[in-house]
Design a binder for these strands. Structure first.
Lengths: 215, 215
DNA sequence: CCTTTCGGCGTACAAACGTTTACCGGACCC
DNA sequence: GGGTCCGGTAAACGTTTGTACGCCGAAAGG
């Protein structure tokens, strides 16, 4: 039901995408708040006034960027979890997929890490919303019928499950930020970070498994 | 051995402090990178040119701010851990102290959260160094003679201990960021965050305790 | 006491900024 | 085929920016 758009709308979308990519490129150096409207327009190859044909201000462009970035991660992670149910396996694969995603779209994740706490308020808000969604999806997956984690987690309070999943999501984003921060072309350092992240995630899982144990 | 300074140097220190506080106040709205030299000078009550008498640029001011902020947290946490040795107790008290510190110097922590990934490179670097120190101190405390955690952790690989402590430090900063993000005057929300953070920290501890368990 | 030091002031300037306004030309629609 | 829509352009505006220069007056120091 996607109406194929005429050359008109297609060209507009493409320019919009140029703006998004330009902003992404520029945020590798300073945060979005200090990227000027003129700067991003220039990098996208249009005149400053043209910017307003797509976004009312830079902040709105940021919100669009958030949705594009984290939306992609969400669908990627959903795919990972759909075919496997063992929690240890899910953990290991999740970190792998995260690392792959980060490598494939490094600038996107740098942007998210940058703006999560540092950005303008509407951008921060958009990120928080997307991360909440990520946590919700993780929770329903962990509680779903096939999941081995479900046998443990079903004995938990619902709120506690959310505490767990939000911790996992937080850890995921921290890991992404750490990977992004590693200087380009140092695979050894990156591997060390991924290794640590896997251990940390497994540690969370072990903790969850023994959460209700006596002593 | 602290030479009491004349009115000359005292006044200079005070102006410097005004600059730091002004920057702290301004970073509640935008990140340091988009705070202009003129803006912070104006807020501190001096003329733009006077700024150069204290810092060569805004970034250097940021580095000074990092040391003041995280230095304070480090000494506060050191005090907490020195008199108690039970890990569960340490965990609970650490979160309490963190919450107290955050409440007492909210702007400082907002600044750290903001700039940790979003800031200018030298500022990010300074934060990373301070957090590494925090992790190191935590590691030696946990391995020290009196600590109950030591009986478990001494069986670990050193690198794994560092993986654990860096995770705890990360979690601490995330918690601080979350507390800071809560709209002012909503103690219920803040309490919920602190509660969740305590549970998460305990979960980490439980995980660590059972780390080497079979299955 | 007389000189040096130095934190802060005032002025200046070129550059970059956000935003507005009028205009162009090709896709769009009837 | 003719009128309308609309993405992009060009020029102009008032502001704010970073940085440089010379000056002042009081503390510091011999």
């Amino acid at each position: 039901m996607t109406h194929t758009l005429g050359p008109r709308a297609a060209q507009k979308l493409q320019t919009r995408q140029s703006l998004l990519e330009a902003a992404l490129r520029l945020t590798e150096e300073h945060s979005l708040g200090s990227v000027s409207l003129r700067e991003v327009s220039r990098a996208a190859g249009i005149v400053p006034a043209g910017f307003y044909r797509h976004f009312p201000d830079v902040e709105s462009l940021g919100v669009a960027l958030v949705e594009q970035s984290l939306g992609g991660l969400r669908t990627a992670l959903r795919a990972v979890r759909s075919d496997r149910t063992d929690s240890e396996e899910i953990a290991r694969r999740s970190v792998q997929v995260l690392a792959r995603e980060v490598r494939a779209r490094r600038a996107h994740f740098r942007f998210i890490a940058r703006e999560r706490y540092g950005g303008m308020s509407r951008v921060r808000e958009a990120i928080r919303d997307q991360l909440r969604l990520l946590g919700d999806e993780l929770a329903t997956d962990l509680l779903s019928d096939g999941a081995t984690a479900a046998t443990v987690l079903r004995r938990w309070d619902d709120a506690d499950v959310r505490v767990l999943t939000s911790m996992i999501v937080d850890h995921m984003i921290s890991t992404a930020a750490a990977i992004v921060d590693v200087p380009a072309g140092r695979p050894a350092v990156e591997r060390r970070i991924i290794n640590a992240a896997s251990k940390q995630l497994r540690l969370i899982i072990v903790g969850a498994r023994h959460w209700l144990d006596p002593t």
